[in-house]
Structure formats: structure tokens, C-alpha cells
């Protein structure tokens, strides 16, 4: 061995830190970007259905959310966290939860509310108890009820068609108060099939209509282990079971479960809103409880409440319960005897 010129480490360049010294390649930024990626099919489907108007809404929401985050971070003297991509995700989700006819300034207000009220006042990403995009949407719904429930008839393929307003099947069901399939399953004078509901050929928020695109994105996230399957499965399952029972008891009053699952924001909510990491429980069991809770509340609002749609409200409500669910489902340490007091 050559004794000369053996190079040894330079102690001045060594880092001291706690173990572990290896880390999984997963980062916050990668997670956010993957989730955004998984939303792309649904966004595209929305744009195909509702034309460039939808694209406009999405872009305005994304840009204004990012801008609000940047301004708020500067104003509050917090480190810029733009690169983690969470503001972009919030913007995208907010846009997907709006109608294609939403004026741009309402989109901007929604973004300010989502980022400002939903996230920054709590201290930024990770500290917010509620899903920011839903905070934005619900705030808008309360502030501008009529704008937020004006829907456009889908015109698949036409990018710049005239906007013909119409009602959503859920909205019609809400005003009729009974299950008249011919009237409810219609959109702009045309009859809808369940296949239309599944592919997205119906009125509604930009990102919620195409169930097939949403499912593709959602399954991708489950495969990537970025969301817990328990949440969507329990959420959708609960909705199906509860509305199924209601339908069986009063077939002429209540819509069948498939209708409830495929209309409104159930699929979008179950896969993308209720699974938001920051605001949903940390364990599988917690996720299941959370999903069931969301499902029950959604059904209660839809069947007996004043609003035709209840996904946003129910998820926000369950967000508030998340810390409790987490505490309740915190594991007993390995080797703890049953019955012995473990987690508080």
C-alpha cells in the first residue's frame, strides 16, 4: 500500500447530527407534485367538458394561491415555502371545486381565503387544522351562494362554446325533494345515463364530474402509498350503504346509492380532499373512522339537510375531529399489556 499521500477526511467539513444518517428519498415537495400529477386527468376532463373557461378558472386559482402564499410569507416574515408545491395544490383543488362560470375575482377572493384563512393564519403548511381549499370553497359558498351554484352545461370537445346554465342532478333532487329519475337525471334538456355520470358528462364543479379520471388519479395515489385506502373506501362505502338503506325504505323519495356516489363531490372529496395529510388522521384505523364520519355527515346533509351537497361541510367537520381521532387511535407501544393505561 502506498504510504505516501493517503488522503484523510477533512474534519472541518464533517457534519455532526443525530442518527439516522440515511433518509428515504420521499420529500414534501415530491409528495405535493405527485398529488398534483394525479389530479391532471380530472382537470383535463373538466376542461374538455366545460371548455377554456374551466382552464381559466383553474389557472387563476393556482396563480393567485401561489401569489398569496408568497405575499403572506413575506409579510409574516416566514421562510418562503413556495417550493414545496402545497400552494399550487391548494389552488388546483380550489379551482376544481368551483363552477366553470365563476368570475375571476371570485376565484381570487377564494384563493385569499383558502391560503390566508385556511393556512397562513395557523402558521403555514402543517399547522392548519382545516383543508385550505375547502375553507376557500365553503367561505365562497356562504358569501356568494348564487354564483357558487350556477352551473354550465357540458359541451364536450367545444373549447369556446356559449355557456348554457343548467342545474346539477343533485341540485334538482334537492329542489324536487323526491326521486323522479326523468327529471333529476337530465342536464340541459338531455337525459343522463349512469355512464354519463361516470365519465363526467354532467353539470358540476370543474374537477368533480369525471369520476373515471378521478378514480385513475386516486388509485395512482393509493398505489404510491400517498393516501390511505381506508379513507375513500370507508367514505364512499358509507355513502353507498346509507343512501342504499334510505332508497330501499322510500324508493320514490330517495335516490339510489349509485346516483349519490356518482354525483356531486363524493369521489373528488373521498380521494383528494378527505385524504389531505395535514388535516386527516395519521393511522389506517383513524382514516377509517374519518371516512365513515365523512360519509355519514354527507348523507345526513344530503338527505335531511338544507344544502343539496354536503361533502365539503362534512370533511371540514371531520377535520376538526382529527386530533381527537389521532389521540384515540394512537397505538399502544409494543409490549404494552392490554388494559394497562398506554396512550392518554
Amino acid at each position: 500500500m502506498a504510504d505516501h499521500e493517503i488522503r484523510l477526511p477533512d474534519p472541518g467539513k464533517l457534519i455532526v447530527s443525530s442518527s439516522p444518517h440515511f433518509a428515504d428519498p420521499q420529500t414534501v415537495q415530491k409528495i405535493m407534485l405527485t398529488v398534483i400529477l394525479s389530479l391532471v386527468p380530472a382537470c383535463l376532463a373538466g376542461i374538455v367538458c366545460f371548455g377554456l373557461r374551466a382552464a381559466g378558472v383553474l389557472v387563476v386559482c393556482c396563480v393567485s394561491c401561489v401569489a398569496v402564499e408568497a405575499l403572506a410569507a413575506r409579510w409574516l416574515k416566514r421562510p418562503m415555502a413556495l417550493r414545496d408545491g402545497s400552494a399550487l395544490l391548494t389552488g388546483l383543488l380550489l379551482g376544481m371545486n368551483l363552477s366553470a362560470l365563476t368570475p375571476w375575482w371570485i376565484c381570487v377572493i377564494g384563493s385569499v381565503l383558502a391560503i390566508g384563512l385556511g393556512k397562513m393564519i395557523y402558521g403555514g403548511l402543517g399547522y392548519n387544522p382545516f383543508n385550505p381549499a375547502l375553507v376557500g370553497r365553503v367561505a365562497l359558498l356562504i358569501a356568494f351562494p348564487s354564483v357558487m351554484t350556477t352551473w354550465v352545461t357540458p359541451t364536450p370537445g367545444q373549447m369556446l362554446g356559449d355557456a348554457v346554465t343548467t342545474a346539477t342532478p343533485l341540485g334538482t333532487l334537492g329542489t324536487l325533494h323526491r326521486w323522479v329519475p326523468d327529471q333529476v337525471m337530465a342536464c340541459g334538456g338531455q337525459a343522463l345515463s349512469y355512464w354519463d355520470l361516470f365519465t363526467g358528462n354532467l353539470a358540476g364543479c370543474i374537477g368533480e364530474t369525471s369520476k373515471v379520471a378521478l378514480l385513475a388519479g386516486g388509485l395512482f395515489l393509493i398505489w404510491k402509498k400517498l393516501i390511505r385506502w381506508q379513507v375513500p373506501v370507508c367514505f364512499i362505502g358509507t355513502v353507498a350503504v346509507m343512501t342504499g338503506v334510505a332508497h330501499a325504505l322510500a324508493p320514490e323519495l330517495r335516490a339510489p346509492p349509485l346516483f349519490h356516489v356518482l354525483t356531486g363531490g363524493v369521489i373528488l372529496g373521498a380521494f383528494f380532499m378527505a385524504t389531505d395529510m395535514v388535516t386527516s388522521p395519521m393511522t389506517g384505523l383513524g382514516g377509517a373512522i374519518f371516512g365513515v364520519g365523512c360519509g355519514v355527515l354527507t348523507c345526513v346533509i344530503r338527505l335531511w339537510g338544507g344544502y343539496p351537497e354536503g361533502v365539503s361541510f362534512s370533511i371540514l367537520f371531520m377535520n376538526a375531529l382529527t386530533p381527537m381521532i389521532d389521540q384515540f387511535t394512537a397505538g399502544r407501544p409494543f409490549g404494552a399489556r392490554p388494559g394497562k393505561e398506554a396512550a392518554p
Partner: peptide
């Protein structure tokens, strides 16, 4: 940075603790 609440640490902990 803040905890994202993702629960990955809870899943990984062999002692079934809640590191987050």
C-alpha cells in the same frame, strides 16, 4: 419544517409510538 401529519412515521415505528 412543520410536521405534515402524513403518518409515515407512525406506520414505520416498530415500537408503535406516535413520533409525529
Amino acid at each position: 419544517g412543520a410536521c405534515l401529519h402524513c403518518g409515515r412515521c407512525v406506520d414505520a415505528c416498530p415500537m408503535l409510538l406516535t413520533p409525529a
